[in-house]
Design a protein around this nucleic acid. Structure first.
Lengths: 210, 210
DNA sequence: CCTACCGATCGGTAGG
DNA sequence: CCTACCGATCGGTAGG
């Protein structure tokens, strides 16, 4: 019945992260005061500082935990042995499902990441890069003629543009589901890249000092 | 030689908008103080209030003017008589060109629009909708089987996702140009939508009060 | 773990 | 009387 102290501690941090994400998303990081976060969590403002050193540490953890959840969900859904288009479809579906209850976190990532100091941004970007690497690999599976060319990156970033933009227009329960959108994006990428010219990646300028 | 007073006034407002956009984009709206904006413009803070009623009015104008410039550029490039794919290509090219020196404005639109009061947001969104309407029409040109179906919106928003996400990865002078990206996006949309199933738009629930 | 309070800085406006 | 501005400082609130 009695929970361990460690578990309470983690639950409390998770509550703080969730309420903070909602307030940051709704009002912006600078306008969501620590007092309002404390009220939303049902604790005193001073108590917040027991769990997080400062406001910025909360922002960092909101984004870090969000991206780790995304990455884990996508990695768990990955079946590299599947036919390429089915593999991509599963990954897209897992990503869109992971976004289902993470609209606030997603907005915070997009709008407030730049408010972190560079070192913290780099930590977060390392997780982002892992996600990009995985999808670039899966996209290269459905478009093998693009593997190793300089258009694979623009295509991959176009994919992330589609998926990461969805929070601005996609609404639950409108007949067009997350699964429908996963189908659509997979098809657009698979069919849309067939006719792309496959210029080779230009060799990096070597010698000459660097 | 001597400029009219009105022209000076407009020049000054444009300077304020440009410097403010840069500072808002670099530090976020709330962290870019009126003092720093004034410094960047080479005027006193009090002088800023001669041109704009308050800080929020600057934010509104930054976004409004930005979107009007985008819309005008795209409308000026539109040749509805062209073959559909060429027409779309021209529109995408014009949009990406209009973004060339508007990275700051674009970031402000994405990150700080929500800080405006709802009425101001609506004014801005009306311009956005005009842009969306125009591209939806052009996309329906290259994918006529989607016209009037409920997938036209997701496809159109996927297009905007690709294009509006580009500021996060696209870098000038990297061999892959804006024109290359306009080609890529046009192709992905044109070829990627060919195999999309054309479900009809479900009729709106009529009668029964509403 | 809270109440009480700080040093710093904000957006906006006064008099002249 | 108006406009276009300046130096100085206001009341209020932020993070801690």
């Amino acid at each position: 019945m009695a929970r361990t102290r460690a578990s309470d501690y983690d639950d409390k941090r998770r509550t703080i992260l969730d309420r903070s994400a909602e307030l940051f998303a709704a009002h912006g990081f600078d306008r969501a005061s620590m007092s309002r976060i404390a009220d939303a969590c049902g604790v005193s403002k001073a108590n917040l500082y027991h769990y997080y050193r400062d406001k910025e540490a909360i922002l960092f953890d909101v984004i870090r935990v969000h991206l780790e959840v995304l990455l884990e969900a996508v990695e768990a859904a990955d079946l590299p042995g599947l036919p390429p288009q089915e593999r991509l479809r599963r990954l897209v579906g897992a990503l869109l499902e992971a976004y289902r209850d993470a609209d606030a976190q997603h907005k915070v990532q997009i709008n407030d990441l730049a408010l972190l100091p560079p070192a913290r941004q780099d930590e977060v970007r390392a997780i982002e890069r892992e996600l990009v690497r995985l999808f670039a690999e899966a996209i290269a599976g459905v478009a093998p003629h693009l593997r190793g060319t300089r258009v694979l990156k623009p295509v991959t970033m176009s994919f992330f543009g589609m998926v990461n933009w969805h929070y601005l227009w996609f609404r639950e329960g409108g007949g067009f589901t997350r699964s429908d959108y996963a189908d659509l994006v997979t098809r657009i990428i698979a069919d849309g890249t067939r006719g792309i010219a496959a210029e080779p990646e230009p060799a990096r300028a070597v010698a000459a000092g660097r």
